[in-house]
Design a protein around this nucleic acid. Sequence first.
RNA 1: CGGGGUGUAGCGUAGCCCGGUAUCGCGCCUGCUUUGGGAGCAGGAGGCCGCAAGUUCGAAUCUUGCCACCCCGACCA
Length: 491
Amino acid sequence: MSKGLPKRSEDYSLWYNELVKRAGLAENSAVRGCMVIKPYGYAIWEKMQRTLDDMFKRTGHQNAYFPLFVPKSLFEAEEKNAEGFAKECAVVTHYRLQTDPDNPGKLRVDPNARLEEELIVRPTSEAIIWSTYKNWIQSYRDLPLLINQWANVVRWEMRTRLFLRTAEFLWQEGHTAHATAEEAVAETRQMLEVYAQFAEEWMALPVVKGVKTENERFAGALDTYCIEGLMQDGKALQAGTSHFLGQNFAKAFDVQFTNKEGALEHVWGTSWGVSTRLMGALVMAHSDDEGLVLPPKLAPIQVVIVPIYKTGQLDELLERIRPMQMGLIDRGISVKVDDRDTERPGFKFAEWELKGVPVRLAVGMRDLENGTVEVARRDTKEKMNMPLADIVNNVASLLDDIQTSIYQKALKFRETHTHRVDTYEEFKQALEGEGGFVVAHWDGTSETEERIKEETKATIRCVALAEPDEDGVDMLTGKPSKRRVHFARAY
RNA sequence: CGGGGUGUAGCGUAGCCCGGUAUCGCGCCUGCUUUGGGAGCAGGAGGCCGCAAGUUCGAAUCUUGCCACCCCGACCA
C-alpha cells in the first residue's frame, strides 16, 4: 500500500477514485464501464441491503425476481419509458458462437443464430414486471401488489465512474400496483420517507426530499420524488427516487382489475429504487484526506483492536485482549483483532484509517498494567485513554456518538452550503464559490430551466417538499413564481 | 461520435527524438534486527516493452494497420 491519498482540495475526483480503490471498495474491471465490487465494499453494500430489505418488509413488501432480458416488443410498449432509455440499452441479438474459419482459435458470432426478436438487457424492469402483473391482477382483492426485487441493471453510459455511474450496477426496484391514485401516491411518498430515513439514520447523510421537474422526471412517470444529498465538493447527488406512475404502465400492458362495483379499471402504479450509487454518496459525504470515514451503523468492522507488543509477546497479549474482544462481540459490536505479525502498528493504524473503521483500540502491555486502553475515533482523529474495566460501555456509546456526530457535521455542511438568492448574479456567484444548493425562484418553464443549465451547469435538483409557498419572481425572466426550488450542480 | 493523450514487472514509471533485449520507486519472496504512527539492512524472484505486419544484421525505439484505456466535449430516469 502506497502512502498518501490525493488531497480533496487539490483534485476531488482523483481523491474519490483513489480512495475507492485503495480502501478496497471496488476497482475497474476488464469490461468497459463495469466495476468489480471487492469484499470490503460489498460488505458495506450487504449492510445497506439488509437494512433496506428489513424496512421494505416492515412496510409490507415481498421480494421476487424477474428476468434480466426484456423482449423488445415488451420494452417498447410504454413509449415514453422506452424512449427515455433507448439510447443506453445493451441488446442481445444472437444466441450462439462458433469457431471462426478465418481465425483459428478464435470465436465469432454465428450469423445463422440471430434471434427472431432482440432481447434488451434491462435498464429498469417496469416492462417485464408490468407484463407479468397483467396475469397476476384480476380483482380489487389482488391489490395492492407490493413487490421488490434486488437485481443488476445495465445502462450503457458513455462515461462511467466507480459506484457513481457504472454501465452495470446493483440496485433494488420496488414495483407496486394499487386500486386508486391516492393509494399509489401514498405508497410513493411512503417509500420516499423510507429512503430518507435510511439515508439520514444509517448513512448519516442529510437529504432534501422533493419532487423532480418535468425535465428530470423518470420516463413514464407522472411524478418523480427524490432525495438529494450534498457532497463535500458542493455538488448534489441524487440518492434515491420514488415514482408515481399513474396508469401509464397499466394502460401500456393492459393491467385491469374488477372493482367492488364490478367495473373494470386500470390499476395505479409506483416504482422506486436505490442503487450502489449510495456507496459513492457514503464515501463522498464523510471521508477525508486520510481515507474513508464510515458511519458505525454501516461499517463492516466497527472496532479494530491493534495489539502493541515486542517479539514473542503476541500470543500472551492476544490472550489478555480476549475478554475485552468477547465483551464487545457480546454487545453486538463487530470487532477485528489485527493480529498480523507481519505489519507494524503504524502501518496498521494508517491502513484502518484508510478503511474508515470508526473506533480503534491500541493495547500494549503498558496499558494492561495501567488498566487502560488507547481509544482513537476515526471521524475526529481524537485519541483518549479509557479504563479497561468499562471499555465495552464506553465503546458502545462512542459508536453512537460518532454516528450522530458525522450526521451533524454533514448537516452543518449542508446548511452552510445552502444559499437563498434572488438575483441571477447572486445565483452565479453562489455556484462559482463553494457550490452547494442554491434556493431560488423559478418560473416553472422548461425553457428557463434549460437556459440556466446551459449557462451555469446547474440543474433543478427538486422542488423541496419542506419549501414553503412564497410569492416571488424568476431571477432570470422576472415571471411570477409561487415557490423556491433547489438548484445545484450535480453528479 | 468530435478533439487530445497513453499503452514497458502486481502498481507507478525511465528509456523512444538519435535502433544494439530494459531504468528507478512501491509492492512481492528469504534472512536478521525491529515493533506506542506508514521500519532498517542484506540477498532474491518477477518482462511475448498492447497486438499484428513491415524496414533492418539487429526494433521498446522507425513505418503502417489494429486493439484497449484515459482526459475534454457531446450523453447521463
